[in-house]
């Protein structure tokens, strides 16, 4: 009896989000038991300090471009030029950073805003995959949008 009722619920794809919500709630309830055991690991691999007075806030990681800034990395032997391009700004971005105090808010909207060692060098594959996800989403949206014309 109960099995046939459950299988009837599972057979309808309209119940998919409901089923997933039930699973997530069950997972959270079970996972709650492990919360007291979770301790914040202060010695983080990718440390970040926020300097509110900097023009690059909150992206300022300090350092000197084309110098030898020490940057934390899990496998420094895989990144021979680690610390070389930290905080490099293109001349235009340097101009913006010198004249305004809001470059940190526009950092992603213009090219060469800041080259972050961690984002682009040690974890570069993540950056590539993130952009690919966006590209895939745009490809789907543009295909569906343009198809309406024909």
């Amino acid at each position: 009896m109960i099995i046939s009722r459950i299988s009837r619920i599972l057979a309808g794809y309209e119940n998919l989000s409901l089923l997933y919500a039930v699973l997530v709630i069950a997972g959270i309830v079970i996972g709650f038991t492990s919360i007291p055991g979770i301790v914040y690991h202060g010695d983080d691999l990718y440390p970040k300090t926020i300097d509110r007075s900097s023009a690059l806030d909150p992206y300022d990681r300090g350092g000197e471009p084309f110098g030898n800034t020490s940057v934390a990395a899990q496998y420094p032997e895989n990144s021979p030029y680690l610390g070389y391009v930290t905080a490099y700004l293109t001349p235009f971005s340097q101009f913006l950073a010198d004249t305004t105090s809001h470059l940190g808010t526009t950092i992603v909207s213009h090219p060469g805003g800041i080259i972050d060692e961690i984002l682009y060098n040690t974890r570069g594959l993540d950056t590539v995959v993130e952009t690919s996800i966006l590209f895939t989403a745009f490809a789907i949206a543009s295909f569906l949008f343009r198809r309406r014309e024909g």
Binding site: Y20, V24, G27, I28, T33, S34, I35, G37, I38
Partner: peptide, 15 residues
């Protein structure tokens, strides 16, 4: 790795 993180990973992949 805490149990909660493992459950979240599995739930995420399930979705």
């Amino acid at each position: 790795v805490p149990l909660l993180a493992k459950i979240f990973l599995v739930l995420g992949v399930m979705g």
